[in-house]
Design a protein around this nucleic acid. Sequence first.
DNA 1: TTGAAAGCGCTAACAG
DNA 2: CTGTTAGCGCTTTCAA
Lengths: 347, 347
Amino acid sequence: MVKQVSGSKSKRPLMNDVARLAGVSQTTVSFVLNNVEASNIPPETQERVWAAVEELGYRPNALARGLRSNRTHTLGFVTDRIATTPYAVRILEGAQELAWANGSLLLLVSTGGDQRLKRQAIDMLLERQVDGIIYATMYHRPVYPPPNMQELPAVLLDCYTKDRAFPSVVPDEVLGGRTAVEYLLNKGHRRIGFAQDSDPVPAAVGRLEGLKQALAAYGVPFDDELVQTGQSIPAGGYQATMALMGLPNPPTAIFCYNDRMALGAYNALRDLNLTIPDDVAVMGFDNQELIAADISPPLTTMALPHKEMGSWAVRHLLDLIEQPDETRHSQPVQHLIECPLIERASV
Amino acid sequence: MVKQVSGSKSKRPLMNDVARLAGVSQTTVSFVLNNVEASNIPPETQERVWAAVEELGYRPNALARGLRSNRTHTLGFVTDRIATTPYAVRILEGAQELAWANGSLLLLVSTGGDQRLKRQAIDMLLERQVDGIIYATMYHRPVYPPPNMQELPAVLLDCYTKDRAFPSVVPDEVLGGRTAVEYLLNKGHRRIGFAQDSDPVPAAVGRLEGLKQALAAYGVPFDDELVQTGQSIPAGGYQATMALMGLPNPPTAIFCYNDRMALGAYNALRDLNLTIPDDVAVMGFDNQELIAADISPPLTTMALPHKEMGSWAVRHLLDLIEQPDETRHSQPVQHLIECPLIERASV
DNA sequence: TTGAAAGCGCTAACAG
DNA sequence: CTGTTAGCGCTTTCAA
């Protein structure tokens, strides 16, 4: 066996090489690189070390570092699909940006919804010693994370567990629905139709609740028949709108569960020879950019705070990681984020 | 210093604990876990080891493993933006799926286009000892990767360097343009307008070239004025279409650079009281699902092979990693992937 | 067929 | 203020 003559032709420089070049011990190099205040290394020595690092193009080995320090500065990001609805990737974007800003990287796994895979995915992250895990969904819903997720800090993104065992961040659907409808009310509308998702997902339930709150705040009675349901796609919006406009006393404004349904509402209204917003106002939800901004007239809608949720999740996760176990909140925080109104021209 | 009484209350079981429980040496456990054929461990011993692994819930530490073996089963995925155009996340999806299928995970960084950040990003990946790097863009274009990307296997996804120094996979824009236009020609159209991007990106150049090839193949002369340019957004498509239809001899079909421009073409045609596809056929490009499938009539378009590019890139990268340095192709492969035609109702 | 032992590159007592 | 040293958990050579 040929022993590498140290310092001669080794491929990548090691911390020892830096030490030798700087004329100090490896420890000193480590202290300088990690900026350990405790052991006051004189500025001059520090500079020598940095110069050596520079000269050799030294790059620390994160595996060795992590093995020693139990910190990898890597977070796991688990999701069922990377993007069911394309705009939802902003969740990932927000998470990645904040992680990066804090010197961490995201290790990505998407499992396609299979529960067994989810467990495996988390195992792979655990093996790689991630500091914590973000468990994200691409639309707001309850989830059932595998038991091995209990083994380290974790936060839920755009989802929650029924028992609230993990910290979680989701959009404030109720406030969003309320804001949307109050905007319509402010514009003078009193007959407001709701093209609702036939699927009772949290978003649908919450937005309807918000609508009711808004009406109540304005003293407008809630009328059941002004809620028409359909699938949350254009065809569903089309049908719901047709049903709404066929009412003896049709609405002057239609609040749609989402932008895709709003697109259907646009089509229905056009077929009815009705003008938006003059004859009927339309309000969407989701701010799905390629739809909302591009159709005519541009759609007024509520934006989902995807990016903000992403950064909140990482922020909170990093805080959790810093905290010693004992300090961790016994009651994991359930955070709601507001949905901003995007004013365009359909109301 | 209190030495942990081995085997008693250590938090996570180590390989040694497994060995002890199975009544074998740590080496044997390692051999069994890594399925080392060379040292014929009798099936019976193997079973004892696996049973011990199971019982203790043992999970190997990937950092230690990587430190020793110089293989982390982790790939870096660098991109300027996670998604400029939302549908392009399928690139990431395709990459992640194939990586997962091969026991690797993606370490994600997006740098927002800053060149210095790109260098840093790659440094962070290098520190973490990734096995290789995927460098991706969200639309087809030339790139200038930082020099430190030479230090390990890397492949370019949806982009290329002018010197072709890295393997690269991009859509076959020329063939795509040709396929689209031949489809129109097959439907009997002979005056075919092109609502072209005013920005001469590779996609625009390639698709125009494809159009010319198709016309040539059918003996139809190329007519300059049938190419009208505009920004690659609905407004640009609107203008281009208006220009096209204002021609003394207007086209019977319009091939649009992308689906967003096609949306603009739809609006223009509607304003002109022209019916799609009866009066004028419209062909898009990109198959941007939320637009293409949802508008009426549904748009016939060419799909970008995002997911396929993603998996090709990972497949190729893994091959590169397996290969010993010497065997690596001196001429990095530049791979083109076909764009499938998506037939809907606008032609 | 199995085990002992030597590191992989780094951190951090502890001692000087 | 700096250096010596003992591991972190694993792979793998070499010997038994």
